[in-house]
């Protein structure tokens, strides 16, 4: 499970990840091209790549004279870890901070109690809802 500083990615870092998710393995210069930001140098992209691989989000392989990077985590997995980290941030206080979820997911709830509720709701729908 990744923690706060590793998951707090900058704009360039998410752009780099997006590029690698779309194109697979790439060299820094190719990533730079895919990110499509002429205001940012290849060196800046390289250091973003380095940071991401230090965090374990990318894997790098040496191919001839340069490194080739690929994503070590899927978009879905990264999103899952982010949601977990956001929800856990105030989890111990009973509050949620800046998050509001439709239904709780970790709630302790038996199958039976849900069946009972569903029966009540079905009865009401049959009677005709207001």
């Amino acid at each position: 499970m990744l923690r706060f500083p590793d998951l707090a990615l900058g704009e360039l870092e998410t752009a780099v990840l997006e590029a690698l998710w779309t194109h697979g393995s790439m060299k820094p210069a190719e990533v730079h091209g895919a990110v499509g930001r002429p205001d940012i140098s290849v060196n800046t992209v390289s250091s973003a790549l380095k940071r991401l691989s230090d965090k374990g989000l990318l894997t790098r392989d040496k191919v001839s004279h340069s490194y080739v990077y690929r994503a070590n985590i899927t978009r879905s997995e990264l999103q899952r870890q982010l949601i977990g980290a956001i929800a856990a941030q105030f989890g111990d206080t009973g509050g949620q901070g800046l998050l509001a979820a439709f239904v709780d997911i970790a709630e302790e709830r038996g199958d039976d109690s849900l069946r009972d509720l569903e029966r009540l709701i079905a009865d009401r729908l049959e009677e005709g809802d207001e």
Partner: peptide
């Protein structure tokens, strides 16, 4: 069951 979202 998804990530640990939790309300009361």
């Amino acid at each position: 069951p998804a990530v640990g979202l939790s309300i009361a």
